[in-house]
Design a protein around this nucleic acid. Structure first.
Lengths: 211, 211
DNA sequence: TCTCAATCTTAGCGCCGTAAAGATGTCTTG
DNA sequence: CAAGACATCTTTACGGCGCTAAGATTGAGA
C-alpha cells in the first residue's frame, strides 16, 4: 500500500458511478431507513462529491426510480420462485401472497420507495402487464385465472380480480411491520403463519359467492 | 382600516396557535401535498415565526400526529355514517369499505400522514379497539361478526378477520389514486363503482370456504 | 403594581437539493 | 502523436429545511 489512505484514493473517473450510486442508495436505505436517504449521503457513501450524481441522474427522484426498478425485479423473481415451488394451483396464490409480503417485510424501505415512485408515474403494477410479461402482476393474473378466481373470457373481470388480490397483498405488506400484530404473530407461531392466516381470511382466488 | 396591512397585524399572543397550526397544516397538506408540508411553511401560513410552533409541539412529528389524530376522527365518523346507512348487514361491509376508500381518495395527503405517523408508533388501528370504542376498527369488527365473517367465540379469529378486511381496504385505498385504473373506472362507470367491484372480488366478510 | 411564566421573535447551526462554473481525465480526429 | 472536443468529477454557492438558544413582549397572579 503506497498510502495510509484506507479508501485508496479513487482513481481518475471512478468507472461505473451509476452502479455505485444505486448500490450505495440501497445500502443506506435498508441501513438507515427511507428518511435518511439523501442524495448527499448517497454521494458520501459512494465516495464522490455532492454534485457528482447529477451527471448520471436528472435529480434525486431519478435515482430513486432506478433503485425502485431493481426492487421490482427482485419482487418479480421472488414471486416466480414462490409460484414454481407451490404444490398445487390453489396453494400457489397463497404462496405468492406470502412471498410478496415477506419481500416487503425483508425490504421495508425498498418497498416503500417502489410504491412512492410508482404513485406519481404513469406506469404502475396494473400496467406492467403491458410492459413485462415476466412481471409479478402477470404471474398473479395467470395464477388467478388458472385457479378459477377470474373468468378467463372476461378481460375486465380478470383485471378486477388481479387488482383485488394485488391490493389485498399490498395492504398487508404495508402493515406487516406494524407492532400491534405482535401478539397475533406470537399466538400463531410466527410471522409467516400470521401472513398465511390473513390470506386465508382474504380468500384470495376462491370462487366468489354472490353478495 | 387603520393600516393598509391586509393581515391586520396579529395581536399580542395570537390566542390559540395550536389550533391555527393544525388547521394551517391541513390546508397546506391537501393543497400542496405531503412533501410540501414543512414546519416553516405551516408557521408562514399561520402568520407566525418559524420557531413559534415549538412552543406548542415538541417537533414536526408531534404536529403531524395531531393532524393525523383529526384524520382518524374524520375516518371514524365516515365509517359510522356508512354503517348507519347500509340497508342490510351484508351490504354494510361493502359500504364501509367504499366509505373507507372514498375517504382516502378525498383526503389523500391526510391519509398518508395518518399511516406514516401510525407506522412508527405503538398504537395502530388494531390497537384502537382498546382505546376508542367508537373507532372505525371496532365498527368493522362488529359488522364482520354480525355478518358471519368471523367466529364470535374465537377472539383470534375475530382479530384475523378484521385485520384481513382492514388490510384489504387499506391496500385499495393506497392505490386508489393510481392512474392506471382509469380505464377500469371508465369501464365500470365511475370510481365508486370500481371500488365496489374490487370489494366484490375481495369477498369481504363472506363465510369462508376451505382452501 | 411588580414579578413571573408563557408566548413569540431573531439569529444561527448544520443539513438538504440543486445549479453554475472550473478542473481533470478520456476519446476522437487530423 | 498532437489537439481539441467531450464526459466526468469538484468547488462553490443559493435558498429552504428542522431545530436550538437567547432575547423581547405580554397576560396573569402575587
Amino acid at each position: 500500500m503506497r498510502e495510509s489512505q484506507v479508501a485508496e484514493a479513487r482513481p481518475y473517473h471512478h468507472g461505473d458511478l451509476s452502479r455505485a450510486l444505486i448500490d450505495a442508495a440501497r445500502r443506506l436505505l435498508e441501513a438507515e431507513g427511507p428518511s435518511a436517504l439523501s442524495l448527499r449521503a448517497v454521494a458520501r457513501e459512494a465516495g464522490v462529491s455532492p454534485a457528482a450524481p447529477y451527471h448520471h441522474f436528472k435529480d434525486k427522484g431519478e435515482l430513486l426510480e432506478a433503485v425502485a426498478g431493481e426492487g421490482w425485479d427482485m419482487l418479480d423473481a421472488a414471486i416466480a420462485r414462490a409460484r414454481a415451488q407451490a404444490p398445487s394451483i390453489h396453494q400457489a396464490l397463497n404462496e405468492i401472497g406470502v412471498a410478496y409480503v415477506c419481500f416487503a417485510r425483508d425490504n421495508p424501505a425498498l418497498y416503500r420507495v417502489m410504491y412512492d415512485t410508482a404513485r406519481d408515474r404513469e406506469a404502475l403494477p396494473g400496467d406492467m402487464a403491458t410492459i413485462n410479461k415476466d412481471s409479478a402482476y402477470c404471474k398473479v393474473r395467470d395464477t388467478l385465472i388458472e385457479a378459477g378466481g377470474a373468468d378467463p373470457r372476461d378481460p375486465i373481470d380478470i383485471e378486477l380480480a388481479t387488482t383485488a388480490a394485488w391490493c389485498s397483498a399490498h395492504g398487508l405488506a404495508e402493515m406487516s411491520g406494524f407492532k400491534q400484530f405482535a401478539h397475533l404473530k406470537d399466538a400463531l407461531g410466527g410471522e409467516e403463519a400470521f401472513f398465511r392466516a390473513i390470506f386465508q381470511h382474504m380468500g384470495l382466488g376462491l370462487p366468489r359467492t354472490p353478495n
